[in-house]
Write a protein that binds this DNA or RNA. Structure first.
Lengths: 143, 143
DNA sequence: TCATTTGTAACTATTGTAGTTACAAATGAA
DNA sequence: TTCATTTGTAACTACAATAGTTACAAATGA
């Protein structure tokens, strides 16, 4: 199976930051919710910062915050930040002397491109706000 | 990155069988086109046979054939045969004591389900015949 | 001044996959 | 009937991606 959990963790982190908009959270606090090591969190947050989805401050009372409203963070941006390699991979060296082998890559590229674009479009239909609201629906109300 | 090449190899195999409809091909012949080991090919063909996309015969003059016309083999069936695990994976154990951690999985499931379904739908728009025709377009004509 | 926190390098352990070897069972041709 | 061919599958090795961990310099604010 695919062992890459970074996309799921990234959405988890962003949802947590969205739930506590007035504070900045440390990687240790976030790690406690995700149940992993703070360095794993910082690695993922580093990627999210490259896409300008979060900002950080070092030092005492430092931590992480969203750069914009959760309703303005679409999950396709998170995908772009975290999923570097294609989900559908090519085989490396088909036989160039075979009529099929010599042209299978460009033919597959067309198909894979469209398939991944379809997933991308589907993810653009969700925001961090949507995930947060879904969780608040599942969470029993408290006083 | 995703190192799983089986989906790409499976489409390669099916396209090759489609290109030579009147013969059955051995795993060794197919392996020569894919440029890999025959056992790798047989493993993938075994999965394709479970979905009834190909049939095999053991022994002398045995080999593999498609069970139907290439225009009747949609790439979503190949996906179903080969991609067992979800492309978008969950993180294993978010903190059940955290309001976000305790509900992130069902919230993500909704999103991931739709994203993968979108990819599946895109793949259902292509058949092995489409891939073969694309390759024959790329292949310079011969006499 | 100092505790806190990020940023990052380096390392280990685990897991999934490709590739390989080996061989029993099936099968058809001679 | 014999035998070369081929599938089907188990067992193994090698490699690559990732999660998790340790360590520590640099930044920062109390």
């Amino acid at each position: 199976m695919n062992t890459n959990q970074q996309f799921a963790v990234a959405i988890h982190i962003l949802t947590l930051l969205a739930a506590l908009p007035d504070q900045s959270l440390t990687s240790a606090q976030i790690a406690a919710s995700v149940n992993t090591n703070p360095v794993v969190i910082r690695r993922i947050l580093g990627q999210l910062r490259k896409q300008n989805l979060v900002e950080s401050r070092s030092g005492a009372s430092g931590g992480w915050k969203l750069t914009r409203a959760p309703s303005q963070i679409h999950l396709c941006s998170v995908y772009d930040a975290l999923i570097r390699a294609a989900l559908l991979g090519m085989h490396p060296h088909p036989n160039p002397g075979c009529p099929i082998g010599s042209h299978i890559h460009p033919a597959l590229e067309k198909v894979f491109e469209q398939a991944e674009q379809a997933m991308h479009n589907a993810l653009s239909g969700f925001t961090v706000q949507d995930v947060l609201l879904e969780i608040q629906t599942l969470e029993p109300a408290k006083e």
